[in-house]
């Protein structure tokens, strides 16, 4: 079953090694607001912020950035500038004593069940090489009916799709 975008329940995904990543209900609601339902809606994107839990191997995405001044948006593209988003990352990281960190990227697609374009996967591979992050990065695409996720790391730069888990 595919996660329903109309609800604002949290979304939980499983990595191939069994670890889980949760998008909180609030994050899901904010992502949903950018879904490209209208025929002229532009793509949106931002970064994912959250926690590597210390008592388990799971992760929680509990904040995001949304399009900021400097970003370029079109129906079929989104170019995110570094400066303002990096500032948000640094602020969250500092305010949490380093426990809320940069976990990856999100953007929207005007399709029901989103799949990454070549531009998307190329850029993900570049980010896995160039960004400074802890363990791995996650990439979420918000479609009009579904949010799908992928993940990669420095050692495994080919992003692997996450498996959605049902949450009641």
């Amino acid at each position: 079953m595919t996660p329903n975008l109309e609800s604002t329940s949290p979304l939980v995904y499983q990595l191939s090694d069994g670890r889980r990543i949760k998008l909180t209900a609030e994050v899901v609601a904010r992502l949903q607001r950018h879904a490209q339902h209208a025929p002229d809606a532009a793509e949106a994107g931002g970064v994912l912020l959250g926690r590597y839990l210390s008592d388990s191997d799971d992760l929680v995405v509990d904040d995001i950035t949304e399009p900021l001044p400097g970003d370029k948006r079109g129906r079929y593209f989104f170019h995110r500038a570094q400066k303002n988003h990096q500032q948000a990352i640094e602020q969250a990281w500092r305010a949490s004593n380093g426990t809320r960190t940069y976990l990856g990227e999100w953007h929207t697609h005007p399709e029901a069940r989103p799949t990454p374009s070549c531009i998307d996967t190329c850029d993900w591979r570049r980010k896995l090489r160039q960004d400074q992050y802890f363990e791995r990065l996650f990439f979420f695409i918000v479609g009009t009916h579904e949010v799908r996720g992928w993940s990669g790391s420095r050692n495994r730069p080919k992003p692997i799709a996450l498996e959605p888990l049902l949450v009641s």
Partner: peptide, 20 residues
């Protein structure tokens, strides 16, 4: 507190990004 539940991480840096 949320910060008590998570591991401290090294300073993160995210470069720009582009998607389509």
């Amino acid at each position: 507190e949320e910060s008590e539940t998570a591991r401290p991480t090294p300073p993160p840096v995210s470069t720009h990004s582009q998607s389509a």
